[in-house]
């Protein structure tokens, strides 16, 4: 079961999608603190504390959208994997792209899962529940 204290970082620019995640967390009674970054750069800032408050303790899971302004999800993954300080964070790609090439590209960065955003909240809810249930964030 997921440790309640481990923060989770959601990188997402769409407000409804952020709401969807928050709502799913609430529905699934997930207690873990949920930090939200609207862009890749913001996310890096939160992770490293460069110019903004660093998430402490560091997040154990990142829910990553691929279609982001300024810095795409892949660019973010590139930076993240290249940073020695930020190793060992689990990453679940949460995207609306069903393109095989996106899927393949994501798995190259050793992501833990690739979830195509369901168009129904109920499905989404189920998916989030499954993830958090199965994944031990310790």
């Amino acid at each position: 079961m997921l440790n309640d204290n481990v923060p989770i970082l959601l990188i997402e620019d769409d407000r409804v999608d952020i709401m969807t995640v928050q709502r799913a967390f609430k529905k699934n009674q997930v207690k873990n603190p949920l930090h939200v970054a609207r862009t890749g750069l913001e996310a890096l800032c939160l992770l490293k504390g460069d110019g903004c408050e660093k998430i402490n303790p560091p997040p154990g899971l990142i829910l990553l959208d691929l279609n982001l302004p300024k810095m795409s999800g892949f660019e973010f993954l590139e930076r993240l994997r290249a940073d020695r300080e930020l190793q060992g964070i689990r990453i679940i790609v949460l995207t609306s792209s069903n393109e095989p090439r996106d899927r393949e590209a994501a798995f190259k960065y050793d992501v833990d899962d690739y979830i195509v955003k369901p168009h129904s909240f109920q499905e989404f809810n189920r998916a989030i529940g499954t993830i958090l249930e199965l994944w031990d964030l310790d």
């Binding site: 999608d17 955003k117 369901p118 168009h119 909240f121 989404f124």
Partner: peptide, 13 residues
């Protein structure tokens, strides 16, 4: 695939 689906999904949700 991304930009059309996102608002749809939002509407749906």
């Amino acid at each position: 695939s991304h930009d059309l689906k996102a608002p749809l999904r939002a509407i749906s949700n």
